[in-house]
């Protein structure tokens, strides 16, 4: 066995993989949330749709995206392997249930992770897969007068079903035609059950990261009297509260909007 293989097969090596993929996924969440905040732009989905188009057509991002999918799979797979090992390490369970003084989330990472995996599958199926591989997502046409900077919006149906995106100019008017993921999102978020699932999943994100972020630093051995409190603060407030709250607000806001329509 090569030394690297040996390293990553060790108990600590597997944990290293968990930590690294976990932290990578954490950074992705920041980017993802940043982009999704465009949903809150009151521009008939223009920014959001352009962002979605950019993500799916800019090659370096494409590469990163596949690394991301790989990270998710590896993270889940190693979690499974570790869980199986851990179960084997205690073949006979205790009769008395312990109230070990450890945080709830730290003891339930597997459960939280499973919820998240389910969510990711549904979430990606709903948006990413349909956006990328089907023609069920509609189009929008944004006409902007470059002199007055006024934009009009209309639905658009391309002749070619594989049409993705175009940007043309007619005189003073800039015409942008793009897949309308925004409408798809708004449509999905008008379903209260879907929103509920979404919010629960974001709750799972919160608790998963509450433990996961700082745990990754512990696993990597990055503990320091001066910096660890900062890591814990970020893990708790940024990843445990702000990020999941940001994501959870989207379905809520869109659902409320849908009621007003």
């Amino acid at each position: 066995m090569s030394e690297f293989k040996q390293t990553f097969n060790s108990s600590l090596g597997k944990k290293l993989i968990m930590a690294l993929t976990g932290l990578f996924l954490c950074t992705f969440l920041i980017v993802h949330l940043g982009g999704n905040l465009l949903l809150f732009c009151d521009d008939n989905g223009y920014s959001f749709n352009m962002y979605a188009n950019f993500l799916t057509h800019f090659p370096p991002i494409e590469v990163v995206a596949y690394i991301l999918y790989l990270a998710i799979i590896v993270h889940a797979l190693y979690a499974l392997i570790l869980t199986v090992n851990n179960t084997k390490a205690r073949p006979v369970a205790y009769v008395a249930h312990n109230d070990a003084p450890a945080s709830w989330s730290s003891k339930n990472m597997g459960l939280l992770g499973s919820i998240l995996l389910l969510f990711i599958v549904i979430h990606m199926g709903d948006f990413w897969y349909k956006y990328k591989f089907t023609h069920t997502v509609g189009y929008k046409e944004y006409r902007t007068n470059v002199l007055t900077n006024q934009t009009t919006v209309s639905d658009f149906t391309p002749a070619d079903p594989t049409f993705e995106h175009s940007s043309t100019t007619e005189g003073d008017t800039e015409i942008i035609r793009v897949k309308d993921l925004h409408a798809r999102v708004a449509n999905s978020f008008s379903n209260v059950w879907y929103d509920l699932f979404y919010v629960i999943a974001m709750g799972a994100v919160a608790f998963h990261l509450l433990h996961g972020f700082q745990s990754a630093f512990q696993t990597l051995g990055w503990r320091h009297r001066k910096y660890t409190p900062i890591v814990k603060f970020i893990g708790t407030w940024f990843f445990g509260v702000i990020i999941p709250l940001g994501f959870a607000l989207m379905p809520i806001v869109y659902y409320l909007k849908s009621l007003g329509r």
Binding site: S10, S11, L12, K14, K15, L16, L82, N85, N86, K88, A89, R90, N98, A100, P101, A102, S103, S106, K107, M109, H211, S215, Q218, T219, L220, G221, W222, R223
Partner: peptide, 30 residues
């Protein structure tokens, strides 16, 4: 089994050995 950083060990240790040790070991190991 593997460590999932729950900290139950530290809480139950009769000599209050700190989780910091695990972190140090990980660092040295990697």
């Amino acid at each position: 089994g593997n460590c999932t950083n729950t900290g139950a060990c530290e809480a139950e240790c009769p000599k209050e050995i700190s989780l910091l040790n695990i972190s140090r070991m990980n660092n040295d190991y990697f």
